[in-house]
Amino acid sequence: MNPALLLIADSRLPAGGHAHSGGVERAVASGAVHDVPSLSRFLRGRLHTAGALAAALTSAAALQASCTPISPAPDTTEAGTRDVTEAPPATEGGAEGGDDRESPWVRLDDEVDARTAAPAQREASRTQGRLLLRVARRVWPSSVLDELARTVPDPHHPIALGVAAHAAGATPEEAALAAAYHAISGPATAAVRLLGLDPVAVHALLAAFTPDLTAVAAQAHFAATSAYPAPHLAPRWEALPAYSAPALDLLAEQHAQAEIRLFVS
């Protein structure tokens, strides 16, 4: 395992994750999550739906990062002498011209959009993706992260996570594992804060989920490799899963409308 994976999966990674509860805050407000056993059921459901989906999409992003050649940037003519501190050339307005619409990152981002039914979930995913991308570009500077930022400034979280993991030197399967862990670790911490649960009991819960994490990551990675059969072939998007969790979608929408909330999502 690449040690960078530890940094990527650490809840202390300063990428804004601490302010997201993954639906737990609303589930606590509704009474559905109220103690360790009910949290366990929530996390199990989340891991095998939203988590499994995020893991597959993250793995796909990492795979795409490893097999997509960087499209020629507009300023490569003097790449050898270019001052890296210089700002990239400005792109005027929101319309970026025809080329970027064909960018594999725009295509993959569209696939994530299509698999994220609730607008509130899409918004939360893009917010976290944008913040992670910002952090990753400073921590693991790489051309593929720059390319992603140029073509999709607000990427979905799994895309930012997959590309960041790749830039940090992790494999696509490791990236999937980080995504699966992220799907339950954030909500678990949020529940500790919201309900005053015993943090040791909640960490024991997370430890009990480790076989599930391994299984979810392996399945996700299998799906991602099926979607990218070979570097020279077009991706088979239909091989990526499209699990849904209507309850999480509803919680996310209710949360976005709530008068009082502590977490962004």
Partner: peptide, 21 residues
């Protein structure tokens, strides 16, 4: 407005991403 997930000090000190954004 930025939401801070029960931890106002985290958002200004340890993980400033949302505020910077």
């Amino acid at each position: 407005a930025v939401e801070t997930g029960c931890c106002p000090h985290t958002a200004i000190r340890d993980d400033i991403a949302a505020n910077l954004d």
